[in-house]
Write a protein that binds this DNA or RNA. Structure first.
Length: 290
DNA sequence: TACCAGGTAAAAA
DNA sequence: TTTTTACATGGT
């Protein structure tokens, strides 16, 4: 199904994955009640295939593969997006430089909530360090990596336990409360599947700790709702300003206007702009392994 | 040393 | 109703 640049996609995903994933294609996840280490790589055959090795090989192999396919957006066809983007002066060089890039999403929505809450307000570097401490304290070791703790694991903790990782007292309370709601069934993630983006954003915003930014972030990054944009996101505002508005820094309302014409790929456009800008500026060596 | 960083909710005005 | 403030950590 169209191009897939796994190495590039994984590098962007793993850059801030703390101790959960490595740059070379491994990631620790929970499966069948056990912390499991996965290795992923793309073969050189034509067409390329994503090879998947788990240690130990997991139960329910078919379900397992389906979960991995979701993580990788394996069923996303980029071609319609590229056809549209290549007709646009601003987007053409961006997509041409990043052909085959897809977002990688965490396998678990509670994990995505931990990531989102950790990234509220503070720098990516600060959030990254907090998650490292969180993982080493409460994660489940799989090889040299850690699987994120599940909601039920965190539901059993006190807010002060999370405070010790560097979460603010309020974020710590929100995370324990969210964990309790998921573990207790009050928050039914399976039921989100059939809901429209806007409806689901409104639902999520009703939970303490989840504001507009977080709700939108959870949808696009955690659920793969690629038309959703966290328009108030500072990074999004900056790249949309840089690539689509002559360099000034737009408000979130202006971001929504500037991206309106990209539906149903508004979130994907923001992702591509962020990726392109990061690779151009952050000093990391983004060149792919040979 | 300040100040800012991929926000949120509660207090104050 | 709208505006202001506290919050935690890491980089500059």
């Amino acid at each position: 199904m169209g191009p897939y640049n796994f190495a590039l996609s994984w590098r962007l995903f793993s850059a801030y994955a703390a101790g959960n994933a490595s740059e070379r294609g491994s990631v620790a996840i929970w499966w069948d009640g056990k912390p499991t280490l996965l290795y992923l790589r793309q073969t050189r055959e034509e067409p390329p295939v994503i090879e998947l090795i788990a240690d130990p090989m997991p139960a329910r192999a078919r379900e397992f593969q389906s979960m991995v396919r979701k993580m990788l957006h394996a069923d996303l066809d980029l071609e319609p997006f590229y056809r549209r983007a290549r007709r646009d002066k601003a987007l053409r060089p961006v997509v041409n430089a990043l052909v085959g890039l897809k977002p990688v999403r965490p396998p678990d929505m509670f994990q995505m909530m931990v990531i989102a809450l950790s990234e509220q307000q503070v720098s990516m570097a600060a959030a990254h360090r907090v998650r490292e401490r969180f993982l080493s304290a409460f994660g489940a070791r799989a090889g040299r990596l850690f699987a994120f703790p599940r909601a039920a694991d965190i539901a059993a903790l006190e807010a002060k336990d999370l405070r010790a990782c560097g979460f603010s007292a309020r974020k710590a309370e929100y995370l324990v409360s969210l964990a309790c709601k998921i573990a207790g069934g009050e928050m039914d993630i399976a039921s989100w599947e059939g809901m429209a983006d806007g409806e689901l954003i409104d639902l999520l915003r009703g939970y303490p700790g989840i504001g507009e930014w977080t709700a939108e972030y959870l949808l696009v990054r955690g659920l793969g709702r690629l038309d959703v944009v966290p328009a108030s996101d500072l990074g999004v505002r900056r790249v949309v300003g840089r690539y689509l508005a002559g360099g000034r820094e737009p408000t979130s309302a202006e971001v929504r206007e500037l991206l309106a014409k990209w539906s149903p790929w508004r979130g994907l456009v923001a992702f591509y702009l962020l990726a392109h800008h990061r690779m151009a500026t952050d000093g990391r060596n983004w060149s792919l392994p040979t």
